[in-house]
Nucleic acid binder design. Structure first.
Lengths: 181, 181
DNA sequence: TCTACTGTACCGTCTGGACGGTATTGTCAA
DNA sequence: TTGACAATACCGTCCAGACGGTACAGTAGA
């Protein structure tokens, strides 16, 4: 229950994401994850007693890390209108700029069983609700949320459709629209 | 049964998409597809000599059907500014309204091997280029493209995040912005 | 001594795919 | 008109191998 990170646990999760990205989310096997993480299979099963619990861990990691950084960043301006949408945009640009790998583990979880993604879905839904409440125009919050979702889905699916210039253009346009709403 | 040449083939592709949606893209097996399509495994392998070729077929179907309908619809207004983006939006609403199932087969292809999605990526990239050229404001074309992508990714991932009202709100906002650009 | 592993051996299930067989229809020279 | 052959569209079976998971004995460090 305690989310005390044991180092190895985190390495296993990262390895799972990496394999999902390179070999396809359907080819994620316990053996491969253990090898990539530099852990024996027994060791892997010590931390995650089943493949299902590995997938739960993957989704949990995504929700926690993203949720926490966003909450931290948004806190100081939380009463200012549109601040959540703007922070969301900022965080998105940063992740994009430092070429953070997409959370491919989510796809692996989906590949295993669509149900595993539900906590992530609840998290996103909750985030969208808060963005709408904080926005001067709820439609703009929707737009920001979905446009970012669009870019992220493309990179999640390994379709590098957009150039860096296009991402910059998109963000500039969204910020201008937010400011003018 | 003297079925047309493409009848069985098409049924197999649909069955594959359905299984990918219900059981998860990683659990798509030839046996399951054959059973769902009402075809023996040997029969399946007659049409698609390997699992890889099944996945190619799935991606091909997506690109062709979507590309063709969009081209047909957009043709009559092709010199009018923003017509492509607007047609794209219209097509999106229609698909959404009649609850067309998402192209889950794409995820199955991705689960098998990330390379399989590349043709789809090229198609989307090409579409985006044409939308930008046809738009009075390229940034708006980007926005429309990505917002729609965002909604579709959510339904693709089986996260039914958005309500119908939100989708309507989004489309209305995008149309208003397009008209005013 | 407990925690956090490693390493090896093993089991039942499922999977892709190869293969051989079958029924129907089409083609075409004799 | 017929008989020979070929192509199409499947069916049913079989198998090597990969997979998730179990079991358990061992070990280095705190």
């Amino acid at each position: 229950m305690a989310s005390g990170k044991s180092g190895t646990r985190h390495r296993i999760l990262e390895a799972a994401a990496e394999i999902a990205r390179d070999a396809g989310p359907g080819n994620l096997s316990l053996d491969a994850v253990a090898a990539k993480a530099g852990v024996s299979k027994g060791g892997l099963l010590y931390h995650f007693p089943s493949k299902a619990s590995l997938m739960e861990g993957v989704v949990e990691m995504f929700v926690e890390t993203f949720g926490e950084t966003l909450a931290e960043r948004a806190a100081p301006r939380k009463d200012e209108p549109n601040s959540l949408a703007e922070t969301y945009l900022d965080l998105f640009i940063e992740d994009h700029d430092c070429r953070k790998p997409p959370p491919s583990g989510l796809l692996a979880a989906l590949a295993e069983n669509p149900e595993f993604l539900k906590p992530a879905g609840r998290f996103e839904r909750d985030l969208l609700d808060r963005m709408k409440l904080n926005a001067s125009d709820p439609a703009m919050a929707l737009l920001v949320f979905l446009a970012v979702q669009g870019v992220r889905s493309a990179s999640l699916l390994n379709l590098d459709i957009l150039t860096d210039e296009e991402v910059d253009l998109l963000v500039a346009k969204l910020k201008a629209l937010l400011a003018g709403s």
